[in-house]
């Protein structure tokens, strides 16, 4: 599904991550690694947020450098620590994503109401807690018709009820999901199919 070739990412002269080849099959993949291991850097590279050296190819057809727009159309990303302009409301962020992906809100309506976002999403983001902001970021990442969803620490800062709702919702989606997390995911309907370890500046498949 996702193929990484000769990947290398540095900040200045500091090497963050280097991969000769890595194949990530379809399904749900869990990327485990300690703080600073390079999980977020890898996810941001795949999402097209930061530049890198090498190739990232989706489903043998879309390469991020050659087809930057088409690739981004089917790869969505949610930040570990999202940041938005504080003068916008959560609803404005969601609507902005909706406009970009030419989507209606039907696909995320359930999440919006079940995660309790409706009670605050008209307020300015400057008034949100980190958990409230994270929910907006997660919902925004679901908008459109992604084939690959990248969720960076999706369970951090959100309450346990919302965690369960999110995991159950993710289990109903027919797409590949990459999840970066320090800890194992709680027991839920969402089954992790592949487990990757991010350490020593590289990524290896564990199971």
């Amino acid at each position: 599904m996702l193929e990484i070739k000769n990947y290398r990412k540095e900040y200045g002269s500091h090497l963050i991550l280097e991969l000769d080849t890595l194949l990530i099959p379809k399904g749900v993949s869990w990327f485990q690694g300690v703080n600073g291991s390079g999980k977020s850097t890898f996810f941001k590279s795949v999402a097209g947020i930061i530049p890198f050296k090498g190739q990232i190819i989706l489903n043998d057809e879309l390469e991020i450098q050659k087809d930057p727009v088409a690739f981004r159309k089917v790869v969505n990303y949610s930040y570990a620590e999202p940041r938005y302009p504080e003068f916008l409301s959560g609803l404005e962020i969601i609507k902005y994503h909706q406009k970009i992906y030419r989507s209606d809100l039907k696909e995320v309506e359930e999440l919006i109401s079940e995660m309790g976002v409706k009670s605050y999403y008209r307020s300015k983001i400057g008034t949100y807690s980190s958990g409230m902001l994270k929910k907006i970021s997660l919902i925004a990442a679901m908008i459109g018709s992604p084939k690959l969803l990248l969720l960076d620490e999706p369970l951090t800062t959100i309450d346990s009820d919302s965690q369960s709702i999110l995991l159950e919702y993710l289990s109903t989606l027919n797409l590949s999901i990459l999840i970066a997390s320090h800890h194992a995911l709680p027991v839920s309907k969402l089954q992790v199919n592949h487990h990757f370890i991010v350490e020593n500046k590289t990524i290896q498949k564990k199971s």
Binding site: I49, K73, I100
Partner: peptide, 16 residues
């Protein structure tokens, strides 16, 4: 500065 810090999520958008 503003786009790098507060709108970096836009770089994941499929915009030409």
């Amino acid at each position: 500065n503003f786009q790098s810090v507060k709108l970096s999520f836009e770089r994941n958008f499929p915009v030409s």
